[in-house]
């Protein structure tokens, strides 16, 4: 198990998350208790699907899509 940093833009915080070989973005969102319907995720500054697997060198950013009033 290794840990990676995940930046959550809405709260302006970086959290550490444990990943294994087959961890996907969706798994990370579940670990962080974030509803995938409400966010988009970039990996190394590129938009990607939640089914995508990640490795220890990846930079993840979670962006909330909720806006307006």
């Amino acid at each position: 198990m290794v840990k990676i940093n995940v930046y959550i833009e809405r709260d302006d915080v970086t959290k550490q998350v444990e990943i294994s070989k087959k961890t996907t973005i969706k798994d990370i969102l579940i670990q962080l208790n974030i509803n995938p319907v409400t966010v988009i995720v970039t990996k190394n500054d590129e938009l990607c699907d939640e089914s995508e697997e990640i490795n220890s060198k990846d930079k993840l950013k979670i962006i909330s899509v909720v806006s307006g009033g």
């Binding site: 809405r10 938009l47 962006i63 899509v65 909720v66 009033g69």
Partner: peptide
Amino acid sequence: EKEVAIYTTLKGFQVIYTECPKARDSFR
């Protein structure tokens, strides 16, 4: 809402994805 956010991100528009501060505790 998510599809719109994906579209504007892919198109590279400069927009902030944030909620109005007055609306956070609203019924909506």
